[in-house]
Nucleic acid binder design. Structure first.
Length: 155
DNA sequence: GCCAACGTTGGC
DNA sequence: GCCAACGTTGGC
């Protein structure tokens, strides 16, 4: 089956492209997601090899800045069990983890970040979950949307 | 910093 | 199960 595509949002002040670039093997554990719909995607749907659009939220302007690859499929988010972590969830049990992560590896930094205003403006992108669904930090992307965003980003 | 949209919590 | 109160996300 063909790989699927996703968009992952991140506030660059917390973890942005620069952090990902500097990470060992340019790979990071995508932790801290605390929304059930996003959790379900991480746990049940994302597969090794899936494409990821890396999106900077809370920036001016918000934009897709890079592509990445899923290199490890869903596994329990260790931060939910760590009382010292901001991701700590006292209701999470090890036998029945509540929150999940995947690992992603940076693939291509886009020469021309694809901004939110541009995505809104393009008819072929205006139906993206990013526009329609508002806040959701892990969301599906169609193959056509992926292709169009990457093409714009390469300039 | 403001605030709209949305998700979660908890009283009933 | 409903829904008001509350907290968070995220664009501007």
């Amino acid at each position: 089956m063909a790989g699927r595509y996703w968009l992952l949002k991140s506030d660059p002040q917390t973890f942005g492209l620069e952090h990902l670039r500097r990470s060992s093997r340019r790979t990071t554990m995508w932790d801290g997601v605390r929304n059930y719909q996003a959790r379900n995607s991480l746990r049940d749907e994302m597969r090794v090899g899936d494409g990821v659009l890396f999106y900077h939220s809370q920036s001016a302007p918000p934009a897709v800045v890079a592509t990445a690859r899923v290199v490890r499929a869903g596994y329990p988010d260790p931060t939910q069990f760590d009382p010292r972590s901001p991701g700590y969830d006292p209701k999470a049990e090890r036998a029945t983890p509540r929150w999940y992560v995947v690992d992603i590896r940076l693939e291509e930094e886009l020469a021309h970040p694809v901004t939110l205003p541009e995505i809104r403006r393009r008819p072929e992108l205006a139906q993206m979950a990013l526009i329609r669904r508002g806040r959701l930090s892990v969301q599906p992307v169609t193959p056509a949307e992926w292709k169009a965003v990457v093409k714009l980003g390469r300039g």
